[in-house]
């Protein structure tokens, strides 16, 4: 079983890294032939970096759009971010305990956010109309990951040292010492995380890398000053 999980995570990591890398390559190779920033837009590159920063960190556009979705989405993402940082302790020793401790409460932000988003998805007519089964499935998957994780932190403590040494062995390909604590919740948690990693590059989760390539947000508004031509378009005038 320990080995099966190890293999699952090797595969999932490979799929995630290679899949996302391929997508990023595809995005960056596809030309953007026209200047289409949603205006008013910054006129300089540093302005664009700031716009992107506000978008990624504060969800600026969503904030303008609907406050409830913003609250839930922001709580979920910030919770997730904190939880991910905290999970670093299974892979390295760089995190001071003073950070690891309080960060555990981030799980609640994540769970509350996800619950809000799930309720909105079936309670608001318009949002229900645009939802495919996979949209619900993804929220439920994340919710189960959050809940199983929180259970191991707050209800039935997981053997942190055991998990740590397991992942240490996993990272160093030390097959002999791959011993996963026999904890049912842990296994469910890990399995769901692997599923999430596997679907990441083939689903809407691509919004994470994708936003950086969105031309309406990442282009500077300077078409009169700087001529912008894509390669395929250049050929038209030959």
């Amino acid at each position: 079983m320990s080995l099966a999980f190890a293999i699952l995570f090797y595969v999932a990591t490979l799929v995630l890294v290679v899949g996302v890398a391929l997508k990023i390559m595809q995005y960056s190779k596809t030309p953007a032939p026209l200047k289409i920033p949603t205006t008013p837009a910054p006129t300089t590159t540093s302005g664009v970096v700031m716009r992107m920063f506000r978008e990624v960190v504060f969800f600026e556009s969503l904030f303008k759009a609907t406050i409830w979705t913003w609250i839930f989405a922001w709580a979920f993402h910030m919770g997730l971010f904190a939880v991910l940082i905290r999970h670093g302790r299974y892979f390295h020793d760089l995190l001071p305990a003073a950070i690891v401790g309080p960060l555990k409460y981030a799980a609640f932000a994540m769970i509350i956010g996800l619950t809000g988003l799930l309720i909105r998805r079936f309670a608001v007519n318009r949002v229900r109309y645009i939802s495919a089964p996979s949209d619900y499935a993804m929220l439920i998957l994340l919710l189960l990951i959050g809940i199983s994780g929180a259970m191991m932190t707050f209800v039935d403590h997981v053997d942190v040292v055991g998990v740590k040494s397991y992942f240490h062995a996993w990272m160093t390909f030390d097959i002999e010492n791959l011993i996963l604590p026999s904890d049912m919740v842990l296994r469910i948690h890990l399995f769901l995380v692997a599923v999430l990693m596997l679907i990441f590059p083939i689903s809407k989760l691509l919004h994470a890398p994708g936003i950086f390539f969105s031309p309406t947000r990442n282009q500077a508004d300077n078409p009169r000053e700087v001529r912008h031509v894509a390669e395929w378009a250049e050929k038209l005038s030959k």
Binding site: Y27, A65, T69, R120, V124, V127, H207
Partner: peptide, 12 residues
């Protein structure tokens, strides 16, 4: 290409 992939159906 990017827009086809990244809509999360948030409903905003």
């Amino acid at each position: 290409r990017v827009f086809m992939d990244i809509c999360v159906k948030c409903g905003a």
